[in-house]
Every structure is written in C-alpha cells, then in structure tokens.
Design a binder for these strands. Sequence first.
DNA 1: GGACGGTGTTAAGAACCCGTAAAAACAGGC
DNA 2: GCCTGTTTTTACGGGTTCTTAACACCGTCC
Lengths: 224, 224
Amino acid sequence: MSTVLIVDDEPQILRALQINLHAHGYTVVPASNGTAALAAAQTQAIDVVVLDLGLPDMDGLDVIAGLRGWTEVPIIVLSARHGSHDKVEALDAGADDYVTKPFGLDELLARLRAATRRAGPQAAEPLVETAEFTVDLANKLVQRGGAPVRMTPTEWSVLELLVRNPGRLVSQQQILTEVWGPAYAKETHYLRVYMAQLRRKLERDPANPVHLLTEAGMGYRFAP
Amino acid sequence: MSTVLIVDDEPQILRALQINLHAHGYTVVPASNGTAALAAAQTQAIDVVVLDLGLPDMDGLDVIAGLRGWTEVPIIVLSARHGSHDKVEALDAGADDYVTKPFGLDELLARLRAATRRAGPQAAEPLVETAEFTVDLANKLVQRGGAPVRMTPTEWSVLELLVRNPGRLVSQQQILTEVWGPAYAKETHYLRVYMAQLRRKLERDPANPVHLLTEAGMGYRFAP
DNA sequence: GGACGGTGTTAAGAACCCGTAAAAACAGGC
DNA sequence: GCCTGTTTTTACGGGTTCTTAACACCGTCC
C-alpha cells in the first residue's frame, strides 16, 4: 500500500505508530529528527508524511518548508499545541492537515486515508531496464521483448527486492525475512527454487545468468 | 478569488461566516440544509465546501456522499462532536478535513487556504477507450458498441478504480478498501463476483478477458 | 579421489485462489 | 407494504501457486 514517513522524537510514540500503521498495511519509514526526515524523503518514495512539530534539531515549520521546496507529498502535522496560531502557521507553511494530541489512532488512519486519496497517483516510480527485460515498479509490470511476463506474488516480491537494490548484494537472510518473514530466515532452499524460476522467465540463458547473479554463500545481486 | 459553499443550519453562524469569508475575498454561496447544498453545488461552480454536519433535513454524511458521487471538490467538515468515530466516518465518506467547534476564524481560513491550494491544478477527466468499450469518467458513462451500458454503483466504483490506473496492477486489498471500506479488506470473494459481472457486461468473451485481467494472488489490471 | 557444503533443476501433492451461477438478504421507490 | 434492482452469501469445479522432496552439479578441502 502506501509508504508513510513518520517523524517524531519520542521513541515510544514513533514505535507505537510504526507498529500500528504497519498492521494496517502501510510501509513505515521512521525518522526521529528533522534532518533524518528530509534525508529519508529524498532517498525513498514517500506517499504521505506524519510530522510531529516538536523536534530536537530543527523547527517543524522548517521541515515543512524543506519538503515543500521540492515535493507535493501530503503532510499531516501532529502537535500538542492547540493554539490556532500554530495551526495557521503550519497550514500556511504547506501542511495539509493538523491533528492535536491526544488523538485516536482511528482518526489518524482516517486522515491518512483522506490525504492519500486526494493525492492520488504519485510521482512515477523508476522503470528499471536491462538489455533483456524491464521492470515497472509502479505498475508491477515485467516485460521481456515487449511482451508482459506474469509473476506470482512470491516471484514478484523477490524480484522487486533485488531490483530496488540495483548492483547491491542482497543477503539470503534479508530476502527470506522480507519476503517470507523472519521465521523463514534459514529456509535457503526456497530461494534456490524461486531464483531458478525468475531466471527461467527473465534470462536468455538461465544456466548462465547475466542479471540475476549468485554470490555463493553471500546472497544475490541484480546487475542492470 | 475562490467560491465557497457554506452549509449550516444555524442562521447566525451562516451569516457570520458569510460576512467574514467575504471580507477575506471569498465569494460565498450559503445553504441552510443538505438539499439546498447539493442543488447549489450542481448549479454553481464551487471551489471548496464548508459543511456543518448537523443539518435538519438529512445526515451530513449523506451530503458528503452526494457530493462525492460526482465531484472532487474539497470538503471541510465543521462539527461540535469531538468523538473520533465521527471524524473517521466523515473522512472516510470523502471529507478532506474535519474541524471541531469551537474553532478560530483564522484556523478555518488557513484550512481553506490549504484545501484550495492542493486542489489547484484540476486535471480534465479523461475519456478512456478500448477496442471494446469506452469509459467517460466525468459523466460516469460506459458505452459499448455505441450503446450505453448500465452499471450499478458498486460495479462503477470498481471499474472506475481500475480504469483510473490503466496498465497498473491494483491489489485486491486496495480495491476492497477503496470501494467497500477498510473493514472489508479481506472479503476477496466480493471482488470475484463483481469482476465476473463487469466482464460479462464489457468483455467480448467473459471467460477470456482482454481488458480486465486477473493476476492470481496479486490483484487486477485494466489493459487499455 | 572422495566427502562436503552450497547451489541449480525438476516434479508432484497440498494448499490456496479464482470464476461462475444462483439463492438469500437488503434497500429504495412507488 | 409490495416490487424491483442491488448487494451479499453460499457452494463447487477448475486452475494456480507454494511447499517439499529428490537428485545432479560444482567447487573446495581433506
């Protein structure tokens, strides 16, 4: 579903939101200060920002301004301050919504839904290309020689993880925990089966892969 | 500047808002009940709606639903009720913002600015065409071979969601949460029923769909 | 050379998912 | 209150995917 950047300096609130939003299907990117938030927003595809105004390193309004400098991503502000002056400042700085603490989780979820609903189709995710095939992350579409290639859910999860880390070595443990869950971190034979299937679908010569490479004992690497 | 439709059954509040917003450059269209509000929204060009939920003739949620049936205009809800359940319902019905009374005028003005700001660039509703049928998003009209095809509300919601994301794979979870609501995210059998109905109405050979495709385990995809 | 750990390939049953039709429950209009 | 159209529920056959197992392969180390 959507990716939420959560910015809050109180670890327990950050953790609670992280767990709850994840349970409701969101991918959560946490940040405990303004600098980390701005950095995270630039390196990852964020669909909506939940921003606590009380940050240790910089003014929350500057975080809003920093984001608004280059992105239209919806920003929901959390704040303990009820004063209307604070609300006006945050909204005029570019925030989309302002929620005062304490707030109910269901209210935050509803406001998240409202924010993502109107933001609609977000900026295009990258289209990863190789000489043999192309992977369209946003549309979950794989093409080879112009023709679409059907992927099963597990195949897609593995492929997506590799393709989102082009050139980087992804450990077997990491793939297993992210695709199958932490309990499967040792089931390396799953990986062998699915890597074989991916190569059969995507590589010209599955026995001598060019793009989906094995690093024996380490993990796998996607070479563009 | 912008035109605001204000819906409130208390004459003095309606009058006060009218004067204040007018003083801040807004053109104000007043309505004292839900029926008048829906009528006004259809006859005049409205940029943003300020809606009090406590109306004499109909439930405020139905007003939201009525507006959302055909327009994306931003809706700011005013309510005396602080309960998070009320907020969730209003936001999920399609409202963009929820302000509890009492509120400061400057806060309302800031929220109006935020709402109109992001509504800004209104894109024209496209006419989606395939070899078999055409979908007119703006007029909620589906045609096949020149003849209009009747759609039930639910059928239309599902079709609209798919057609608005041409080529993109839309997960079952996403369709269910957007059409039926977050509580129905697991009711995948609804989808099977409605996809079958849509295909029966729109595909030449419903058993071998060309435009409304299934990706087993992943979701559905509309291919233009 | 042979054992061994890690890897690739294939196949088959189990588990799960999907399409279809038809009936039951529900809602709105008259 | 009845009637019509819509949504929800139910059941089942057929298909796809996941998991598991068995075996071949390739290098390294003893």
